[in-house]
């Protein structure tokens, strides 16, 4: 099959945030089978924060992610199973376990300025015979020269693809375009884009990325991802088809999956709520939304105040412990001012 764009479906990984990491084996089997049958080339599965992300910090998984990976592998005869790993959370040990179960792609994610912590994991993934992706998160937080420097590091470690990851859903289409353009000019490997829809720009940003030469794109069916979710896969397939860009994905099958299998899994529909809009507006990591909502309820404050303060403090992905800390501080200062 010829494809111009290779889609990685992230609903079973990024989408895990939206349902507080409650996936069951049965749900994953159904979704993975449908994605496979629709012709999606890569399906990512892990805890929302990557392998070994199940924790008090990020939320405990209902099902061991290795069981979920195994379930997906057994139903996917065409699609490749991908896993995400954030160095500092997951280790080579979990990567090996996932590879043994049949995962074929390793996406190693670091903050946009910290690519060098990925060296060990990219090398390990290569040794395991996996395809590798360097995933530069919170790409809005570094100047373009820095992004380029870090992408070159990822490439030098052996990444087959380097992604610009708009974890906060903060970037505007022109900002995505200039980032992708800079990478296309400076690295030789594939360039990818992962968006979040917090400012309703995931689709526009994805198209901007594709126009500048990105060929690896993340989507989540029915927007099932952190914050307001990612670029909606079934919509992206339709739009790209109109543009004459081949994804190799069956549109009707994706629509049916979204409607018949994913919609019932969602406890609440994926919308741009005031919290997710605040994420995109303040430049905060998308998975903070649900944690901030809980902390706001606990301390009787506005979750937007927490998110805006986190943005000011330049908190990076993974610092969920800062949410309660900041919430407690805001509640305290409010109590004093009353």
């Amino acid at each position: 099959m010829t494809r111009d764009i290779y889609i990685t479906e992230v609903a079973l990984r990024d989408g895990s945030h939206a349902i507080s990491h409650q996936y069951t084996v049965e749900q994953v089997r159904k979704v993975a089978k449908a994605l496979n049958d629709a012709g999606v080339p890569y399906i990512e599965i892990s805890h929302g924060d990557g392998l070994a992300g199940s924790s008090l910090q990020y939320g405990l998984s209902r099902t061991n992610e290795m069981e979920l990976i195994e379930a997906a592998v057994t139903v996917a005869d065409r699609s490749k199973i991908a896993v995400l790993l954030l160095p500092g959370i997951g280790t080579v040990k979990e990567l090996k376990e996932a590879a043994k179960l049949g995962a074929k792609m390793a996406r190693i994610a670091t903050h946009v300025t910290e690519a060098d912590v990925a060296l060990q994991h990219i090398h390990a993934a290569k040794d395991l015979g996996m395809e590798t992706v360097g995933f530069l998160m919170m790409a809005h937080m570094a100047p373009i020269e820095k992004l380029v420097e870090q992408a070159k590091l990822m490439e030098s470690y052996g990444a087959d693809t380097v992604y610009v990851v708009d974890s906060a859903g903060y970037l505007l289409p022109d900002q995505v375009a200039e980032r992708i353009r800079a990478l296309k000019q400076s690295i030789g490997v594939n360039v990818g884009f992962h968006g979040h829809n917090n400012l309703s720009l995931a689709m526009a940003n994805t198209l901007a990325a594709i126009k500048e030469g990105a060929t690896r794109i993340d989507g989540s069916v029915r927007c099932l991802g952190a914050g307001a979710g990612n670029t909606q896969t079934e919509v992206l397939v339709a739009v790209l088809d109109r543009m004459g860009i081949k994804t190799g994905v069956d549109l009707y099958k994706m629509m049916d999956l979204a409607e018949d299998i994913i919609a019932p899994i969602l406890q609440t529909p994926q919308e741009i709520t005031r919290d997710s809009l605040t994420l995109g507006y303040a430049g905060v990591y998308s998975s903070f939304a649900l944690h901030a909502k809980r902390a706001a309820a606990k301390f009787g404050i506005d979750s937007r105040d927490i998110l805006i303060e986190l943005g000011k403090r330049k908190v990076v992905g993974g610092q969920e412990d800062m949410i309660v800390d900041v919430a407690a501080e805001i509640a305290k200062s409010k109590a004093i001012s009353i």
Partner: peptide
């Protein structure tokens, strides 16, 4: 037991924090 480490590049540099 479980341990997680996060690197934060903010300037000026942040103090070490542990939860």
């Amino acid at each position: 037991g479980k341990a997680i480490i996060i690197l934060n590049p903010a300037e000026p540099p942040i103090l070490m924090r542990n939860t």
